[in-house]
Amino acid sequence: MPRGLIHSESDDVCVVTTDVQKGEEVLCAYLEKPASHVMLKSLDDIPLGHKIALRDIKAGEKVLKYGRVIGIATKDVMKGQHVHVHNLRSLRWGRR
């Protein structure tokens, strides 16, 4: 059973569908073709519904979900880390 789902093939993040503990292995399935999936190790505790990075993302890089830009990384993010408001911000509003 997958513990995470990926909206689109080009996405940089997977949404975890159970609470995930640091160090656990997470199987993320692609929504469009559930047979294909990625396995990755979580570097953080990540609550249900939050995002885990599928690749290393550099500060300043755009982050994709639904195959679309959902914001920009404000810090370097490692594959397996929690992606949220502490390292991702909107390009539309919010100038933190």
Binding site: V15, P47, L48, G49, H50, K51, K65, R68, V69, I70, G71, V83, H84, V85, L88, R89, S90, L91, R92, W93, G94, R95, R96
Partner: peptide, 21 residues
């Protein structure tokens, strides 16, 4: 800007990080 309202605190707790998402 609508930061602080959009996404709401509830949205953020639920994992939504930005208005685009």
């Amino acid at each position: 800007d609508l930061l602080g309202s959009q996404p709401t605190q509830g949205n953020i707790k639920g994992g939504l990080s930005t208005i685009e998402e």
